[in-house]
Design a protein around this nucleic acid. Structure first.
Lengths: 206, 206, 206, 206
DNA sequence: TATGAATGAGCTTTCATTCAT
DNA sequence: TATGAATGAAAGCTCATTCAT
């Protein structure tokens, strides 16, 4: 409280490392099971030292939020297609990205859900997630609009409403990570790809 | 612990009431914020009395699970269509049901998500949810199969995979309740209805 | 509090039975582990019914005291020798009695020790035990005096001091029940018999 | 639980002090009346601080056990006689030691009895007491053997059985502390000294 | 920077006891 | 007599946070 820690690069790096450790704990035990002492022990430092970097537990949770958002915007497994490519191709890439995450780091969806639930009661978490959601929505709307304009997508599509549904579909697929014995994420994504194509694509055969 | 209370009808009713109170608390403050004393206070009884009905907190959470499952199988807002009706009609009814819940009791999706997260770490909760999920899956698969057999749905549909995606879509729509300022649930559901139709329905025009 | 239960014979019998049940619980789990509900459950009645017979837990403990004292004065395994028999013979009988109890119902010494510890802090229990102890002391002193008078015991014996030591020896032997893997009670008693003889008996060989 | 406190000398000292406080509480109110909060209050610290040193109540009880054993092996009031002195003299010293404790710190016998009772149900406590008892037995047996070999004690003595009875006698004398209005411990010990002499000593006059 | 020690608010659970029926 | 329901006073324990060094 007296002297806030400096924002040197080394400090930032350390904070990021500790936030990653906290993220791992949340993935394992849930936000409810997050313990300051446990995170510090996992990081091999004294709990008071952790508090030096994150003065309150809320700060630590904010660090976890940052970490998750960082993971989400991180370079996907496959290189992102250019904006000038076909919309259906770009959507397929998004689905591919989700499938890859579901296979390699399913915890991210779990932690994200934990944070969304908390966001409803914690204004700071809520705002951060809302920002991310808005950015995602804008991205989807833009993509859909360009597809509609180019004639690749159905002309009677409402970009805003369609983006809302797209988000719901993606979210729903991500939530499959919460079931243990679910079917292969790959199958789910392949089927979703067909569904979206039949829904969005302009009917060239008419 | 020594002498368990009897299972008289009155006792069951009381337990159900208290579970409902606990459910409301979870909806408001999350599973993490569930407090035995708070639930008792809300119900206007001593906390020890609550423990008389639910000897442990885990029991109380199990009561919340039962309550949620009860809500989910409760008679939907509109009368359920008969199994001999068109599949698309029945699917539309499912969507309608979700929309109605999203408008009238959105907490149910919030609590359900809380329970799913806990289910990953709490075997008892996990089992109960898995049972529900399995029943839902069987229901969807059966519906899709009958549609495929009758020629109403695309003949090349894989009922199991399609049911998996359907579940994901429904789940994703339900999760819209976690966002505060989302678009109208009705719009989301209407759009989803179109999407599912274009995906599942046999192309009579070909 | 309003109406104390009647003292009918049936009532007394029931109280005695319940006290015996409580005694068994104390033997098993200690005075600290005595639970009103547990005793009631063991007796197959509602805990409130037990409270009807023993309005407070202290009453129940008093009942256990009575039960233990009853066991102690109960007809010993072998018929008690007449007061006109040799003192050493009567002492040997006392030792035999302890040995028999150590073999058949060692719990009695355990419970007795529990009660003695409590008696230091609970006036009611303390008084009851003190009465018993006094009676025992008087018995021993009388026996020793008659032996001294008759010339069977050493003439220079101080009956009061000797009785005190006798009590200590008996108590110490009884406490052997608190050790699990102790030597055979029989050996202990036999050895004690020799020790007391060499200490108390008049030296006829001098 | 996560990060156990270090075992620095200062820490050990503090633990010992707190264990002594707990010991005093047990002496005053019994093991049953031992309260973590009460001990902390008596020590002038917050109860959570006490838990910092003794993470569980069982740990605290173990600390009390250690404290008692430490008191028992502590340098007796009078300097311990050398092993080459007469056995009867050494036995007399043991009795003297008990008498001194009975007069100066009678609580030790009370607490010891509490612990013995608990040891029957608490494996950890039981083991610690068994170790002490074994050591004591070995000490007595060794002493008796040397006396028998040197001709100071009766040649027909069975060292093991005699040690068992000796232990019982000592224990019984120690238990005199549980009675409030008992005779002087000194008288008891003097009488016991005579008794043991007549029992153990070789009859030089025969 | 880093740490061990210390703290207070609050949690679930236990249990003897009371009471209306 | 007998019972199920209800209660309040604790109890042990957890944990984020503070602080002196």
């Amino acid at each position: 409280m007296s002297c806030r820690p400096p924002r040197t690069p080394a400090h930032r790096v350390r904070r990021a490392e500790l936030a990653a450790t906290a993220y791992a704990q949340v993935a394992e035990r849930g936000l409810e099971g997050l313990r300051v002492r446990e995170v510090a022990a996992e990081a091999g430092i004294n709990h008071a030292t952790l508090i030096y970097y994150f003065p309150t537990k809320a700060n630590l949770v904010a660090g976890v939020v940052d970490h998750v958002l960082g993971l989400l915007v991180a370079p996907a497994v496959t290189p992102a297609p250019q904006p000038d490519q076909a919309v259906m191709h770009r959507l397929a890439h998004e689905l591919e990205d989700i499938a890859a995450r579901l296979e390699r780091q399913p915890q991210i969806f779990r932690v994200l859900t934990e944070l969304q639930l908390r966001g409803a009661r914690d204004a700071e978490v809520g705002r951060a997630l809302a920002r991310m959601d808005d950015a995602w929505t804008r991205f989807l709307v833009g993509m859909l609009r360009s597809g509609i304009d180019s004639g690749e997508l159905r002309s009677d599509l409402d970009a805003d409403r369609a983006a809302g549904l797209l988000r719901a579909v993606f979210r729903g697929i991500g939530l499959a990570a919460l079931r243990r014995d679910d079917q292969k994420p790959r199958d789910l994504v392949d089927e979703a790809s067909k569904m979206l194509a039949s829904w969005l694509a302009a009917r060239s055969d008419r």
